[in-house]
C-alpha cells in the first residue's frame, strides 16, 4: 500500500543503516525468548542444564566432540531428539494433551461464535441506531474493560456455584455469548465507518434493522469480524485464569491447565520436555499468526484510534 513512498524515503546514509541495525536488534531481542524456548525443546536434557549456554543444540558425545551444525549426523541427531522430546511431552503419563486439545477447541469455538455474533449485534446498537443514552452507555462498555478479572473471579465463582455451573464448561464459554467490551468496541469502530446511506436506502425499501444488519452491515464488516474472531479465538485458547478458577476435574482441563500441571508435577519436568509441551499448546496460535499477522496487527492497532 505504501511501498512506493517507503522506497523513496530509504535514501539516507550511514545513520539510516545504523537505525536499521538497531531496529533489527530490537526485533531479535523480542524473538529471542521464543526462539530459545524452541531450541531448548530440541536439546537433550543434559544440555539444558549445562553451564555453557548455547542457543542451538550441540549433541556432544562423551568426549565432548560435537558434530558440525551442517553435517548429516547433526541433522539426524536433531531429528531423533526432537521426536523423542515431543513425543515424551505429548504422551506423558500425567497429562492427556489429546483430551485437552479437544476441550480447548470446543470451548474456543463456542466462545468465538458467541462473542462475534453477540458483539456484532450490540455494536450495531451502539453505532447504527441513534438513541438517547447510547453514548453514555458506551462509556460504561469502555469502563468495564478496566475491571480486572482477579477482582471478580471470586464472586463470579460464587455466582456460577449458585447457577450450578461449577463442574461444567459453561463458565468458559457462555459469558462470551453476551458479548465482550473489547469486541463490541472493535466492531463499533468499524461499523461507524460504513456510510449511513447504505442502510438508510435499505430501510426506505422496507428493510428492518435486522434486515440491514444481516444483509448490509455484516457482509461489509467481514474483515472486522474475522479479526474479532481471531482475537477471541486466541484469547480463549490461551486463557489460563478462568479455567484455573472454574474448572476442577482433570477431565475438563484445557491445554493451559494441562501445561501448568505438566510443568509443576512432583520432582519437576525436564526443561526440554516442558518446552516441547509449550510449543504443542502454542502451535495453533502460532500458525494462525503466520497466516494472518498483518490483519491481526491492523485490528489491534485500531484500538487506540480516537473517534
Amino acid at each position: 500500500m505504501s511501498n512506493g513512498s517507503g522506497t523513496r524515503r530509504w535514501g539516507g546514509g550511514a545513520g539510516r543503516w545504523m537505525l536499521t541495525a538497531l531496529m533489527l536488534v530490537v526485533g531479535l531481542m523480542f524473538l529471542a525468548p521464543l526462539f530459545w524456548m524452541f531450541a531448548t525443546s530440541l536439546k537433550p536434557a543434559a544440555e539444558t542444564l549445562s553451564r555453557d549456554v548455547g542457543v542451538l543444540p550441540r549433541f556432544a558425545d562423551e568426549s565432548g566432540v560435537a558434530p558440525g551444525k551442517l553435517s548429516g549426523a547433526y541433522a539426524e541427531k536433531l531429528g531423533s531428539q526432537a521426536a523423542a522430546n515431543y513425543s515424551a511431552a505429548f504422551d506423558n503419563p500425567v497429562t492427556d494433551f489429546r483430551l485437552y486439545i479437544r476441550n480447548t477447541a470446543l470451548v474456543s469455538v463456542l466462545s468465538v461464535a458467541g462473542m462475534v455474533l453477540s458483539s456484532a449485534i450490540a455494536a450495531y446498537g451502539f453505532s447504527r441506531i441513534k438513541w438517547r443514552g447510547r453514548d453514555s452507555l458506551f462509556l460504561v462498555v469502555l469502563a468495564t474493560m478496566m475491571i480486572p478479572f482477579t477482582v471478580i473471579m471470586a464472586p463470579q465463582y460464587l455466582l456460577y456455584k449458585h447457577m450450578g455451573w461449577i463442574g461444567t464448561f459453561a463458565p468458559l464459554w457462555v459469558p462470551a455469548w453476551f458479548g465482550g467490551a473489547f469486541t463490541v468496541f472493535l466492531l463499533r469502530q468499524f461499523f461507524l465507518g460504513i456510510p449511513r446511506e447504505l442502510d438508510e436506502a435499505a430501510q426506505l425499501d422496507g428493510c428492518s434493522h435486522w434486515g440491514s444488519f444481516w444483509r448490509i452491515i455484516l457482509p461489509l464488516a467481514k474483515p472486522a469480524l474475522a479479526v474479532a474472531a481471531l482475537l477471541q479465538f486466541i484469547a480463549s485458547w490461551n486463557d489460563f485464569l478462568a479455567p484455573l478458577v472454574f474448572i476442577n476435574q482433570q477431565k475438563q482441563y484445557t491445554l493451559m491447565m494441562g501445561l501448568a500441571l505438566y510443568e509443576r508435577q512432583h520432582g519437576g519436568t525436564p526443561w526440554n520436555h516442558v518446552m516441547a509441551a509449550s510449543f504443542i499448546t502454542m502451535a495453533p496460535v502460532l500458525v494462525l499468526f503466520l497466516f494472518t499477522q498483518r490483519a491481526l496487527i491492523e485490528g489491534v492497532a485500531t484500538q487506540g484510534l480516537k473517534e
Binding site: K161, I166, G167, V245, N248
Partner: peptide, 9 residues
C-alpha cells in the same frame, strides 16, 4: 473450591 462449589469428587 470444588467442595465449596458443590462439585466435589
Amino acid at each position: 473450591v470444588a467442595i465449596g462449589g458443590g462439585d466435589p469428587p
